[in-house]
Design a binder for these strands. Structure first.
Lengths: 199, 199
DNA sequence: AACCTTTTGGATCGCGCAGTCCATTCTTGG
DNA sequence: CCAAGAATGGACTGCGCGATCCAAAAGGTT
């Protein structure tokens, strides 16, 4: 689907569909995401869906992921790209807190979904791996930076990976426990390894 | 299904079904778990499945969870119930490592599944919450114990929650990244907050 | 052996849902 | 204003799969 050759009306419809799908997924997960439901929610017909997402559900899902990850990234900016001070790390953490605890995002099953869908959609899998790698490397670079090192070493990379796992685990546990407490606990402690002050 | 009134043959068949289902789930996830596949794998007919699991897929899934969680718990014993020494914590961690890195358990989608299924199955949800609460409390008690305190305080509980999140996050990221590296990184650092020696 | 219970086979139903197709209506650029 | 392309409507198809049901075989008990 070449978005650029769409009418403005078309673009609006497409966006409406993506938003509704994202909302549905956020609220009820993928299992129950049906094209019918998206159609109903957006008052669009079957053919519109396949018009804007020729790959069908797969394509729609990909768009949802892109949409959500763009927002997740935005929530961490601009701190994410200058993690050389404690203050910046705190801004990063606070950005995440805001992101996850507003509009019920802590219940978002995207992580679980990603793991699930990636098993059957090679394209999506590759893209997700790239995303997670970038995120991990960015954090690892930050961990190195606050210790006045250019290149992250193995320890830095383990720490970055661990931090991401904490967050994702917090999301998963939140869905299992139906409580944001795990994620909150994680975010309270996520800077424990970050030096209080750049020496 | 009252297991106790089953013939030995019946118990064997039931066990065969649970094992096959667990294996399927471990290998391909829930999305693709079909009763047909389980039936084929175990050479059992439709009616047998519903004979041993009157709740159908739901019941089968519950049995799979019970089965897997029993094994996860066993893998952490006996350390899990005496976490008052560094040595014991290390044994605990090593038990987890063995558990997850043998028979490809790091690819196990049970966590993601749990989050998914819990949304639509109240019974299962309640049971899972109980399981995770127990686990968290046990770890929190251990965190307190190694610091010579009887009752865990808020910090101990945050730490316990964080440790669990790390592990679960490691599993999720492993599925996304198709690599056990995240889980390995987590397990390398998971004892970072545990004092080297009981003072 | 006779009787009852458990275990097994497998055909069949019904539903939900992704995806296809063709016809119709709107937009837009020349 | 008038084609050409874009956007929309909605019926229809096909299939996977969970669940039901009616029997029939096997096993165990007295």
């Amino acid at each position: 689907m070449d978005v650029s050759r769409l009418t403005s009306k078309g673009r609006a419809t497409r966006a409406r569909i993506v938003n509704a799908a994202a909302e549905q997924v956020r609220a009820h997960g993928l299992e129950t995401l049906s094209l019918d439901a998206v159609g109903t929610a957006t008052s669009t017909s079957r053919s519109q869906l396949f018009h804007y997402f020729p790959q069908g559900k797969r394509g729609l899902l990909r768009a949802v992921f892109e949409h959500e990850i763009a927002e997740l990234t935005a929530a961490q900016e601009p701190a994410l790209h200058d993690l050389s001070s404690r203050r910046s790390w705190e801004a990063w953490r606070d950005g995440l807190s805001v992101y996850y605890f507003t509009q019920g995002r802590w219940t978002c099953p995207l992580t679980a979904l990603a793991a699930q869908v990636a098993a059957t959609d090679e394209d999506l899998s590759a893209w997700l791996i790239a995303q997670s790698t970038t995120w991990r490397q960015t954090l690892a670079t930050g961990v190195a930076a606050i210790q006045h090192r250019q290149q992250p070493n193995d320890q830095d990379e383990d720490l970055a990976a661990t931090m991401i796992c904490q967050i994702q685990g917090g999301l998963i546990m939140g869905r299992i426990d139906r409580s944001p407490e795990s994620l909150r606990a994680v975010l309270r402690r996520i800077l424990d390894w970050i030096p209080a002050q750049a020496a």
